[in-house]
Every structure is written in C-alpha cells, then in structure tokens.
Design a protein around this nucleic acid. Structure first.
Lengths: 139, 139
DNA sequence: CTCAATATTTGATGTTGTCAACTATCGTCC
DNA sequence: GGACGATAGTTGACAACATCAAATATTGAG
C-alpha cells in the first residue's frame, strides 16, 4: 500500500476529517444529556432489533465489561431494556424503550444535518462522494 | 439543507465511517502506550511549531482545564514541553521534545496506513475521493 | 489605578475504558 | 449422564478523560 499514492492521500484526508469531527460528537451528545459513547450505543441499537451485549462490545470495539456500565446508565434512564436471550440463557439482548427510540430519532436527526462545507460541494461531487463512500463501506 | 438529498446521503455515510473508525483510535493509541486524546494532541502539535494551551483546547473542542491534565501527562513522559509565551506572560506554549517528535512521526506513519477497503476502490475512485475531500476540507 | 477579560491551574465529580477474577450457562467429548 | 473448556455477563480496582466552579496571574482599556 506504500506504493499507492492516491489511496494514502485519500486516507490522510479522511483522517483529518475524522479528527476534526472527533470533538463535535461530545458537543452534540451533551445537548441531549448523553455522552459520546451513549450516543454510539443508541445509534447501533435499531428500534425493534435487539442486540446482544457481546455484539455491542464488538461494534464499539471495547471490552465487554465496559458495556455493562454503559448499559446500566442507559437502562437507569429508561432508554433501553435488558431482555433474556431467547435461545441462550447466558446472553441478554438490548432493546430500545419507546423513550429510547424517540431519543435515538432525535439524535440521528441532529447528527444527519451536514456541516455547511458539504453543501458547498457541487451537486455532482456530492453524488460522487456518496457513491464512493457507499462502495467503501460495503467492501 | 433538508431538501438536499445528495448532501444528506453523503453526510450519513461519513457519519457511519466516522463511527466505525471511532474504535480504531484507542487500539492504535494503545500500541504506542498513548490514549486517544494524547494521540490527538501529538497530531496537532507539529515539530517546531509551538501551540498555546488555549488554542489546543479549541482544536480539541474541550474545556481548557482538561488540557492541563492532558499536558501534564505528556510532559511527565518527556514528549512535550511547556514554554512561557513570548509576548504574553499568561500563555504557555507547547512544544514537542525530540522524543515527542519521533513518537509523533511513528504515530502518523501508523495512522496513515489506509484500511484495506480503501485499496479496493478503483484507482479512479481513489483519485476522485481525494479530490472531493480536499475540496471539502479547505472550504 | 481600576476593572473587566483572558490564560492557566486546582479540586470535586461523573463517565469511559482496561484488566483480572467470578458466576452461570452452553457444547462437546468420553 | 458427567466432566470440562469456552462463552456471556458482572464486579471491583484503577487510570484517563471531561466538565464545572473557583482561584491566581496577567493583560489591556478606560
């Protein structure tokens, strides 16, 4: 990959973008009385699609023990529920409560508002960007 | 912006990418015995370009008091130095030590290695992505 | 000189994250 | 069926991160 200038150039720019946005999540989260990690959890759990805690740990790429506390706090706020797993009695599946689903919708609505710089791209570049990113994410 | 589907679509994908990469920084950081926040600090301070603490807080979009502890830990490891500001005696400027500069170079080298998915894009898409992102970041 | 504004630090507090150790359950192998 | 290793989740100890409010020191304007 070292001998592949366009890939490295594109990736460097993505790094810059990622780091420049790293600070925005805490701000956005605070407005909803959430932490960044809690936002990430709500983002991952879709309404009506329970997620085992272990899988959540993998999605967050963090230790399973970390998920316990994270879920404790979200559950104590009534945003998610622990449900015993159907087949395997070791697992607990996480489900959004109605309140949680509403907050998630609000969260996603706020996250989805693109920063002005995206709107300043030409229509063609916006479509190209969308196409390339979707290819990048699915592979 | 609500009535601008391509911008929103592109931004949604960037969000996904951002969240999917959120977990990688801790891993990369740990390999160098750093925390994600410390990586971000080293990334921001370029060799030979001292940065006032206040400006660092702005770049990290965090509280100034947070920077104190962050800098304390990096300084106690000999990676950066506090220097009294030239003009204003209230400010302290942060400078990389030689050790810090070496670690920063290593950090950036590791961060710059693109994930395989980027390499799977066609050469044309890689160039397009690079072009669009550079336009996005400069505006 | 006085006073509001700014840069940094300190202390209190809550969250995130890791690791090691523990319990409960599952699956497999004999 | 019973022993045993693997897996899901929890707990406790601990360090780092992050915020706020309060304190200090310095600056710059009036």
């Amino acid at each position: 990959m070292k001998g592949n200038p366009p890939a490295c150039g594109a990736w460097d720019l993505l790094i810059q973008l990622l780091l420049s946005q790293r600070g925005q999540l805490p701000v956005l989260a605070a407005a909803l009385e959430l932490s960044p990690a809690q936002c990430h959890v709500l983002y991952i759990i879709e309404p009506g699609r329970p997620v085992p805690m272990k899988q959540l740990a993998v999605s967050l790429s963090c230790d399973a023990s970390n998920v316990t506390g994270l879920v404790d706090r979200l559950e104590s706020r009534g945003l998610i529920r622990r449900q015993p797993g159907a087949a395997d009695r070791r697992v607990k599946e996480l489900e959004l409560t109605p309140t949680g689903a509403r907050l998630r919708a609000e969260l996603i609505a706020r996250m989805s508002t693109p920063p002005p710089a995206v709107g300043r791209l030409s229509a063609r570049d916006q479509r190209e960007l969308e196409r390339i990113l979707s290819r990048l994410l699915q592979s």
